[in-house]
């Protein structure tokens, strides 16, 4: 029976196609749906298209996770310590992993990574969080933008202003050139 282990074909965001054990891939509700409802993934030609968020690296991480938890007879303690080690990756990858897991509707992993992210955020100041997540401070920037007044001087106003009175000589042709460049 072991030789007959069914495989499923998955296509990740970079268009590469991988072959994965079906029982592991079935852990992800999204893949499971595709297989059962649409009969996809049975061959390389009708591989299951995974969502944009799932890069090959993330897919292999997710499959590792599924592979571990799919094995029966593991104690809770074992699972817990595996989970703990599993999310010990840098923040950027953790974010990627969270959105990839979310797009595959893999709820336990989403919970796990979200908890890990929350632990990172907890007790930090906004600046520290911004540093860790490389986020722009667009809250204060927005205030700046609000003050921005729209510049409604037309182009030929500007030119005639520079050139003094003879700017008025500019003909329509010049303006047209502007428009088309």
């Amino acid at each position: 029976m072991k030789m007959m282990k069914p495989y499923v074909w998955l296509q990740t965001s970079d268009d590469s196609i991988q072959q994965v054990e079906q029982e592991i891939a079935m852990f992800c509700p999204l893949i499971c749906q595709e297989i059962i409802q649409k009969g996809m993934g049975s061959s390389k030609n009708c591989a299951i298209c995974l969502p944009q968020q799932v890069s090959p690296a993330m897919l292999s991480l997710i499959l590792d996770y599924c592979r571990f938890h799919q094995v029966p007879g593991r104690s809770n303690k074992e699972r817990k310590s595996y989970d703990e080690k599993f999310v010990r990756i840098d923040t950027e990858r953790l974010c990627e992993l969270t959105s990839a897991a979310d797009s595959l509707q893999l709820k336990p992993l989403v919970d796990l990574t979200s908890r890990a992210l929350a632990r990172i955020i907890e007790g930090k100041t906004p600046e520290e969080i911004r540093d860790i997540f490389h986020l722009p401070d667009d809250l204060t920037e927005n205030v700046e933008v609000e003050e921005e007044h729209v510049d409604d001087r037309s182009v030929d106003d500007l030119l005639s202003f520079i050139n003094g009175n003879d700017g008025g000589k500019l003909n329509i042709l010049t303006i047209l050139i502007f428009v088309f460049t």
Partner: peptide, 9 residues
């Protein structure tokens, strides 16, 4: 932390 996170972006 929630308030803090709300001030990030």
């Amino acid at each position: 932390s929630l308030v803090s996170a709300g001030l990030v972006c």
